[in-house]
Structure formats: structure tokens, C-alpha cells
Design a binder for these strands. Sequence first.
RNA 1: GGUGGCGUAGCCAAGUGGUAAGGCAAUGGUUUGCAAAACCAUCAUGCAUCGGUUCAAAUCCGAUCGCCACCUCCA
Length: 460
Amino acid sequence: MKLYNSITKSVEPFTPLENNRVRMYSCGPTVYSYQHIGNLRTYTFSDLLKRSLQFAGFRVLHAMNVTDVGHLTDDADAGEDKIERAARAAGRDAWAMTEIFKAKFFEDCAGLNILPPDIVCRATDHIAEQIAMIQKMEDKGLTYCNADGIYFDTTKFNPITDLSNMRIQASEEYSRVGTGEKRSSYDFSLWKFSPTGAKRQMEWESPWGVGFPGWHLECSAMSMKYLGETFDIHTGGIDHIPVHHTNEIIQSESVTGKTFAKFWVHAGWLSFGDSEKMSKSAGGTLLLDNILAHGYDPMAFRYLMLTAHYRGPLKFTWEALDGAATALSRIRDFLAESDLSQGNIIESYISTFREHILNDLDTPKGIATLWTLLKDNKVKKDDAARTIIEMDKVLGLRLLLHVSGKTDLEVPAEVLALLTERTALKAAKDYAGADAVRDQITALGFEVMDTPKGPALKLL
RNA sequence: GGUGGCGUAGCCAAGUGGUAAGGCAAUGGUUUGCAAAACCAUCAUGCAUCGGUUCAAAUCCGAUCGCCACCUCCA
């Protein structure tokens, strides 16, 4: 299997550190709000990666964090904790609020057929581990304390893993970010003191004073706790490269003296083809719920995401989603007419498909292979269907639900009666009457299709 | 100003040196009472623009234009 590694900025052969087992960590959501469809693209990507690793024959141990404290509104450490701010603005309890958004996040993931991670860990459940990490850094003389909290002194340590080609070069004259309490703009917060005179909803005792952990720390502490000091793959959104992941590496490697993660794999941005802006602050977010409310199947959105390469940008437009929905529906119709039990996996097609997927998760080519197979007249339909279902282990489009025998429609008696009536009217050549009845059936949510075998119904 | 990236048909999108994948839409046809669905066929001498390198360029180089992201909240 080959994967793009942000460290080397190239596609490299991937082999696990330990035999057949892959240990993978994904930066999860910050649960101060809903996750929009751009966020969900990143999690769909990590799911695709996990499924592809499994398809390649690896066993995957997958951990994901839930950030429920400490993620500031400003990566330069000068902002406010997003959780606290959102909770205060809504007049809610921060603890209850994060639980709600966390639950909603996993509900959306389930909707998109994103497999649950083996381990889900919350920052607030790992305060002790984070404090212990800071102490190790302090023992090595890599930290300093100021009025704001404990900071990592980036001038005192050079990490083994070099992500610095992506390091933000702060331009003195242009940057609107001051160093604040920091000695260097590259330094980052490990522990923030609670503001004097104000009690935070979330705060803990520490050897340095009451406060809360810096955002980057949780990922280091939890990933190493569950996956070891060096593990195989770390994933996240492409925006995490310059600050969050760079800092994770620095602090982790400063503590262990070992390479933190071997592969860093990042998902590209979802953007909007129209002028609609997608940002949380602009309030222009689009949620999975919005897509569902428009009547789309979540699998149509997943299909759309798979037609683009995970690293590149993807323009979301309703027109593109329409196209994806239609394409998916045609695949489903094809499967519904097939008998899986009579089908065998076609080796030539599945190996081409596998080749594409194992080459840095090339789902666009994988899907193109699926269509070539679907339209190949030389292939027995049942065999094609069986092979497509095999492909779906990676694609995760829940195609098995649409194979014949699995989608028995529950047609109301009323609709069946109308269908019988229409057939009779047709036989009597009363076409106006037959069309009127067809309209009634349509109004009840079913489409009438006249096939060579007689009339058939499809759920609209 | 710095950094990363992008510009391929009406839409989405593959394609990093060898002559433009795939899907949607559209058009024509088969079928149908008519539709729909299905099936067949057609659909970029062209890859933002202009130069250059090469036997060969969407792919490499230079310039120009436009767009996006990060450096200020984002995955």
C-alpha cells in the first residue's frame, strides 16, 4: 500500500511498525458546536483510510479524540476557549453542552457510515496524563512560566519529524498576531491559568496553578497513551499542519526522544462552488442535517466525496450532489435486479480496484472501475453485483442494503389498489384515467414504472 | 507581505512528459398509449492566457490573469 506522507510531501510505501497491525490516530472534533459537512469530509477520509487498510489485510487500531476543553479561538494562544465561550453565550453548562455536540457528531458519522473508532477519548478525561507530560518537559528545561501559563520554549528543542516546511512564517510587519506573553511566536501553550477573579466552568488543579490544558497537548497525551510513543498514522484536516500538528510533534518528541508518528495524512478542503461561504464564524455552515432536509440520502453525499481524491479540494454544489444521488441510485437499481447468491467476485475487476485504492486511496479511479464493470456486457450481472458489493467494503456506501431481497418495499394496500386500477384502465385504453391514477400514486410517494414484465413500483 | 494550493466540457472530477478516466446534465435512437425508468449512441483537436524546453506538454520552465486557504475562527 502506498500513502502520501505530509512529512516528505510524497507518496511512500506504507508498512506498519508492528507486523500486520496499524495504529492510527485521528484528530477529532472540538465539540463546541455542530460539525459541518466540511468537518465531516475529514472524518469520511479517515474512515476511507481505515477501510482501505483493512481491505489491504491490515488490522487497524483506531483512536480519535474529542476536544472538550482548551481549544482556543485563536491558534496563537491569545484567544478564548471555544467551549467556555459557546457555553457562556448559550447560557449552558459546558459539560452538558459538550456531551450533546459529541453525541450529535457521532450520530452524523453513523449517518455517513463512518465506522466508530476503537477508542474515543476526551481531553477532560486525561488531565492527569497531560499534566504528567508537562512535567516531563519541565524536567528537561523546555518550558517557561509567565502570567498566562506554562509555555513550550521552541528555541530549545528541534523535533525529529520535520513538518516545518509548512510552519507559518510570521511576517513581522504583516502579522496581526502579537506574541503576547510568549517569548517567541512559535512557542505554544501547555497549561493556561484560569483568569484571575473569574471561575471557569472547566478548570483543574495543577502544580503550577488552577487552569486548563493547552489544545495541542491532549492529542499527544492521548495518542501516546493508547497507541504508544511511536505509532503508524496520524490524520487530520490539512489546516492542522502548520500549528496543531507541528506542535504535537514538538512536544511529543521532546518527551520521548522518539519519532512521534510515521505517516501524517491530511484531508483536503471542502469548498463551495457558488459564492456561499463556509465558515463557522460567518454562520454560513451547512450541516448534514441540511442535506437530509433537502431530501438527499447521506450516502449521496458520501458518494460525492469519494468521486474526488481525498487530498484535493472538493467544490460542493447542489448540482454536484444531485449528480451523485442519481449515480448512486443507478448503482442501487442495478444491484436490486441481481442475485448475490448466484454471483462470484470477478478477480480481474477487483484487483484493478484494489490497485487503485492501495495507491493512495484513489477512489475516483476505483469508482470509474466500478462503472466499467457495471456496464460490461460480457460480465454476468450477478457476478458484477457480487464484485461491486466487495468494492463497497472500501467505499462504504451501504450498497448491501440495496441488493434484491433486502429492499422489499412495504407498499400500502391503497397504492396497490390504485396500481391494479391503473392497469385495468390501461387495458381498457382509458389513458386519461390511467394517467390520473398514476398521479395519485405519485402523490403517495411511489413511482410507477412499466417494465416488460409489467408495472413495478419504486419509492420516490 | 509570507506560506500552501488551485484554474480540465453546462456541473462535479481523474489525469505530473506519449496524444484528455468516470459520473451528472444535454442531444439522438430503441422501448412505451404517453411519460418515467432502462438500454444503445453522440458529447473537450481541447486542459485560464502568452511565451519557452522537447520528437512529443494539461503535465516541465518563465511571465501574466483569476481563485481559495492559512498567517486572524474553521477539518
